[in-house]
Simulated scan of single mutants.
Amino acid sequence: MMIKRTLADERQTIELGSQLATALHAPLVIYLQGDLGMGKTTFTRGLVQALGHQGAVKSPTYALVESYEFNAMRVFHFDLYRLQDPEELEFMGIRDYFTDDCVCLVEWPERGFGLLPPADLDVELRENSDGGRDVMITARTSAGETCLKKVVS
């Protein structure tokens, strides 16, 4: 199952993240794909704030991971852009993050190839000819499909 949307601006990117937040359940792995500046962190901001986070949501480019605690789940936002070798993830205890009470959003997942679990949802953001973004959210598992069905309905 897949949904496609065109996003005209940052506000619509945040709104789409918020919509997905209403359908989330743990455990879930979400890959965020797209070039630099395509809105992966903006999408994450909408999602995390819709879950109730009051503070800033920043890209974890240097820290590699930002964590957010909620009543029903924990959310981890990874940015692997600066990762030099997937083995670095072993040193940070990557497997400890992917547990039954967690939703993990991973930017640049290809940099962690071989050490990351497969995605339940794949979110791909691309620039379109109008200067906005086209987004495709693809369910890769039954858990991802359950989530997407809630967004579509």
Rank of each mutant, 00 (worst) to 15 (best):
K149W: 06
S67N: 12
G39N: 09
S59P: 01
M1A: 13
S59I: 10
E127A: 15
T61I: 10
D9E: 10
M38P: 00
G112E: 03
F98W: 09
Y31K: 07
R126Y: 02
M1I: 03
G46H: 01
F113M: 11
M2H: 07
A50S: 15
L28A: 12
K149S: 15
E66M: 09
L116D: 05
R5G: 01
V103P: 00
D9K: 05
R126H: 04
T141D: 12
E110V: 14
D9Q: 06
Y68P: 02
E66L: 08
F113C: 03
L20V: 15
L80D: 04
D79Q: 08
N71P: 02
F70L: 07
D35A: 13
K40Y: 13
D120K: 05
S129I: 13
A72W: 00
Q12L: 13
G114C: 11
K4S: 15
W108L: 13
G132C: 12
L148N: 06
L7Q: 06
T61A: 12
A21D: 03
L24K: 04
A21E: 02
V48N: 01
L7M: 10
G34R: 01
F70E: 04
Y97E: 10
A56D: 14
H53D: 09
Q84P: 00
Y68C: 13
L47G: 00
T141A: 14
T22G: 12
A139K: 04
G17H: 08
G132K: 05
R45L: 04
E124N: 07
E107H: 03
A63E: 03
V123E: 05
V103G: 00
D9Y: 08
D134W: 00
W108M: 11
D79R: 02
